[in-house]
């Protein structure tokens, strides 16, 4: 009774596409994200032109591109490097302090009871509001900006690393204890590697936060950097120029994000979920 119905779908299955069609479909499928982005830009451009939106409110993509070209390359490089420098210094500081701190917190009940609440308080403080104070205290130079970036980036690294360290299978730590290995070795050989996926997910989030931190700091006090450049451009109603700087910032963020992902892929391929291998 069931056999005719089960065989029916097979006979009515679509005949295989000609090779030509299949290749076109494949190309469309691969290019879909790019096509969607281009379509959005086109809609943006047309909407601004048709509705005659003034460029100081929302510039068209073409106006942004034009203003980007008009800014000297030298100037772009100076501002980009200033932001990148501060971001990377703050980020590096967050990694260098955050990961050892996480190891200490994960292994000491006392430390985690005493320090953790304070970390949460720091994280709950709006850093943007504290930024002017930090600038007053630390004065001119990169230092205040690096500290602001550090404060914004380090919390996710600490929290995620602690979670990762604590996700180590208890039996694995029992094995370590049954071998009579030192705590330090247990951290190095077992806990830290188990935390690698967690650490990298934090590193990816934090690297984009580092750019945000640098820009926030530059809004408060800076003489160059992309954040400063945006503040400067908007104060002169050069909105397309500010948008161009925004595009550079987004690109920078994306590039750093990809760089962290690539590092994980190359150095710790085993730490990726199976589907990403």
């Amino acid at each position: 009774m069931t056999s005719p119905t089960t065989s029916a779908p097979r006979s009515s299955a679509p005949a295989p596409w000609p090779e030509r069609h299949r290749r076109l479909y494949g190309a469309l499928d691969r290019g879909a994200p790019l096509l969607a982005a281009l379509a959005l830009l086109l809609i943006w451009e047309l909407a601004c032109r048709l509705l005659a939106v003034p460029s100081y409110l929302l510039p068209t993509p073409s106006a942004i591109a034009l203003s980007a070209v008009q800014v000297p390359l030298d100037s772009w490089l100076t501002h980009t490097w200033a932001t990148l420098r501060v971001s990377l210094q703050g980020y590096a500081l967050a990694v260098l302090i955050g990961i050892p701190l996480a190891v200490a917190l994960a292994n000491s009940r006392l430390l985690s009871r005493t320090l953790y609440p304070q970390l949460v308080i720091i994280q709950s403080t709006p850093i943007v509001a504290v930024a002017p104070i930090i600038v007053v205290v630390l004065g001119a130079g990169d230092a205040p900006r690096v500290v602001i970036t550090f404060l914004i980036t380090f919390f996710p690294i600490v929290v995620s690393t602690v979670t990762g360290l604590q996700a180590t299978p208890p039996a694995m730590l029992e094995l370590s204890r049954s071998l009579g290995a030192s705590r330090l070795r247990a951290v190095r050989d077992i806990q830290l590697p188990f935390a690698v996926p967690y650490i990298f997910s934090a590193l990816r989030i934090s690297v984009t936060l580092a750019i945000i931190g640098a820009v926030v700091a530059e809004f408060v006090a800076a003489e160059n950097g992309l954040g400063f450049f945006i503040a400067f451009s908007t104060s002169f109603f050069k909105v397309p120029q500010a948008f161009a700087a925004l595009v550079v910032l987004v690109s920078l963020s994306l590039a750093l994000f990809q760089l962290v992902s690539l590092t994980q892929r190359l150095v710790f391929p085993w730490s990726l979920p199976k589907t990403e291998k």
Partner: peptide, 17 residues
């Protein structure tokens, strides 16, 4: 813990890396 003791756990507890 003693040298002459070996333990096999419920889970294989291997290191994935």
């Amino acid at each position: 813990p003693r040298e002459e003791v070996g333990i096999v756990f419920q889970q294989p507890t291997l290191l994935p890396w």
